[in-house]
Amino acid sequence: MKYATHLRNALLAAAAAALLVSGCASTPRVSAEQAHDVLKTSFTERGQAKLDRLEQDDVQKTCSYGPGTAPSKEVLDALEKAQLAAIKFPADGKLLGDWRAGERIAQTGTGKQYSDNAAVPSGANCYACHQITPQEISYGTIGPSLLGYGKVRGNSEAILRYTYGKIYNSNAYTACSNMPRFGHQNILTEQQLKDVTALLLDPSSPVNK
């Protein structure tokens, strides 16, 4: 079963590659190990960005696929389950912080780049990918619009936990999401995660006006 899926994926990959390089007899195959080895020789550490950033964890390994080579549903389900189990919810049980602070975090794009000061807290850059408040017209569309997020979903404990959890680790709910795992990867602090959760769910946040 698993073998069959792999074979199918491999065939699809070859077909996709052939489409892009039409007229080319043979497209060499490159393994993940080869790619990793080339990266190791191509980068140097700078600022806070050390070479260990080229080492992939399980999620990154599983999710580095091209068209037609997606992992099986079983693999993706297992990935979500493992990531869900790794979420650390706040010990005090409070999931809502200050939405105003959350808005600032959503607007801030710096953090973790080699050009950034590691001592300054990271932003989440939510607007790069999502529409959030109606006031900000400069928003991206990589992720879905979050306009009216809390108004639509309400404020139940389940929604609170899902929202906090999704920001903490997007892969717990959508394997290989494009969204960073803000809590899991220590991009945001617990307080920042609460603040962004409040931006989405606090009834007084402009998101829900």
Partner: peptide, 20 residues
């Protein structure tokens, strides 16, 4: 051809704190 295939592979390579 080797450079193209490698480039394609690297295009999908995720890493770093943001998984990008």
């Amino acid at each position: 051809r080797q450079a193209y295939a490698l480039g394609q592979k690297l295009f999908y390579y995720r890493g770093g704190p943001h998984d990008f």
